[in-house]
Design a protein around this nucleic acid. Structure first.
Lengths: 119, 119
DNA sequence: TGAACAATTGAATAATTATTCAATTATATC
DNA sequence: GATATAATTGAATAATTATTCAATTGTTCA
């Protein structure tokens, strides 16, 4: 039996097509950036945070109360979202308010909701 | 010191705002569907598969060759994408061809690319 | 019918990552 | 300055998940 745990090198591959697509692929760097964004939205807690922030600017404590998740967990996730430039923060006195950093996140949320509605 | 590992119940929470947002939140079911889609796009291998399929209809062996990943790994990921209705398959003889299931995926990829370009 | 090929699948392992707990930082107020 | 509050952080644990390996299914063609 042929080993099937190897990368495919068999003759029937449509080389021309594969080479064409290979040229059109994104760089590894871009791919990682993009998958990073989607990974962020792929976690239930982070998705809820982002969706909530799409409705209102909120502080960590509001988010904790709203989602029933500890302050620490919220804060850890917010840091990830901040590093990805998906949310921004603004301190007013003791309280740090979070909001969405740009419209891309909003677009992504909308497309996501639309897909969910139709399936 | 106050315990900070509990869900926030402190007085300063803006209850009115929180209640308002609570009403606007998505159902748990929808949230899971949507985060499922993003989770799918959040994996490097799956993102590459989807991006490749956005350019051309391809078989498992083409994808394996294109991405340098074993047939088995590709197939496992394709199953996940199929279950989420992100890709569809069509058998022609021995070969199974995969393509994107709908335009939402394409929209998501485009927004992702745009965000990556701008950051 | 049997041999070869394309793809799928299940179980195990390896790697990643979300959450918790405890401690710490930053700001405001008494 | 001391105290309380809001948020962040690091380390450890628990849970999730991508990949590999081996076996199997479905199809074609000699």
């Amino acid at each position: 039996m042929a080993k099937n745990d190897e990368v495919c090198e068999i003759i029937y591959v449509d080389e021309k097509k594969v080479k064409k697509v290979q040229k059109e692929m994104l760089s590894e760097e871009d791919t990682e950036t993009i998958s990073g964004i989607f990974k962020a939205l792929g976690d239930l807690t982070r998705l809820k945070i982002l969706y909530a922030l799409s409705k209102e600017e909120l502080c960590v404590c509001d988010l904790s109360s709203l989602l029933g998740i500890t302050l620490s967990a919220i804060s850890h996730q917010l840091r990830i979202l901040r590093n990805l430039k998906l949310v921004k923060s603004k301190r007013r006195g003791k309280i740090v308010y979070y909001s969405l950093a740009n419209d891309h996140v909003l677009s992504l949320l909308h497309v996501g909701v639309k897909h969910a509605e139709e399936s």
